[in-house]
Computed example of a mutant assay.
Amino acid sequence: MKNTVMTFQRQKDEQKKITMLTAYDYSTAKVMDNAGINGILVGDSLGMVMLGCEDTLSVTMEDIIHHTKAVARGAKNALVVADMPFMSYQTSVYDAVYNAGRLMKEGRCQAVKLEGGAAVCPQIEAIVAASIPVMAHIGLTPQSVNAFGGFKVQGKSEEAAKRILAEAKQVEAAGAFAVVLECVPAKLAELVTKSVSIPTIGIGAGAGCDGQILVYQDMLGMFGDFKPKFVKQFAHVGAEMEKGIKAYIAETQNGTFPAQEHTFKIDEEVINKLY
């Protein structure tokens, strides 16, 4: 059955963990969907893992729409959530609603995600009022990496922890159906999870959250530029891909590929008439 925002809420209520991964193309989304993933995020992380950018700030609306279209075609059961890229919602409430609408209409997702707490609550309220489900995102928000001075754990001091707890309650009150907690101490994330009625989705926030999300290239060992502490590699697909590509190169160079079983036949009489 199709996962919806109500599925996420029901799983929190029934204490069943929610599973999410990022995806950016049809084939990967289809594999994840067949595996039974609850939700797929078309993250602005595509800037780093797909486009080779040093951060997520360069990702455009057109980038997200393009990749969301592909994922939506492959995901028949998973809830597809599209990231709102940097400066697509911060500039005004109007821009936020307009761009969220584009992601729904053109990208064919079922929800959008935006980063920030109290500062973006007016945007969350307006987008939700337009009948577009919103997933919030607090803690380490990668679009604010320059303001944070790098990719750092958030909420370690009493003041910072209180702010994260308050922001979780604020985005809930604004109408968000779920909230991502990124790079937050595990005990704080567990407290936040108990303090709000909406699902919490953790990434680097411990097992106390209602669900988990990872960038799929990270958890499959396909992205080698760096490995965050919170990532577990569940498979080493990158190494297997490199092994397979090297075998293809070798067999092509030594002439063993393509073999007879990989070729098509033609009647010898036809060939003879060509000479």
Rank of each mutant, 00 (worst) to 15 (best):
K2F: 09
K2R: 01
Q9N: 05
Q11T: 06
D13Q: 07
K17N: 13
M20R: 03
M20V: 11
Y24T: 02
Y26P: 11
T28G: 00
N34F: 09
A35C: 12
N38P: 09
M50P: 06
L51Y: 05
D55G: 02
D55Q: 07
I65P: 00
L79K: 06
L79F: 10
V80I: 10
A82E: 04
F86D: 08
V93Y: 14
A100N: 01
G101N: 05
L114I: 10
E115G: 09
G117V: 09
V120L: 08
Q123V: 10
I127P: 10
I132T: 06
M135N: 06
M135I: 11
A136V: 09
P142F: 15
P142R: 03
Q143K: 13
A147K: 14
Q154Y: 11
A160G: 08
A161P: 10
R163F: 06
F177Y: 12
C183N: 05
V184G: 07
L188A: 13
G204L: 09
C209Q: 00
V215I: 11
F226H: 02
A235L: 01
H236P: 12
A239V: 11
K243G: 15
I245H: 01
I245C: 11
I245W: 08
A247G: 11
F257Q: 01
F257H: 07
F257I: 10
E269K: 13
V270Q: 11
K273M: 14
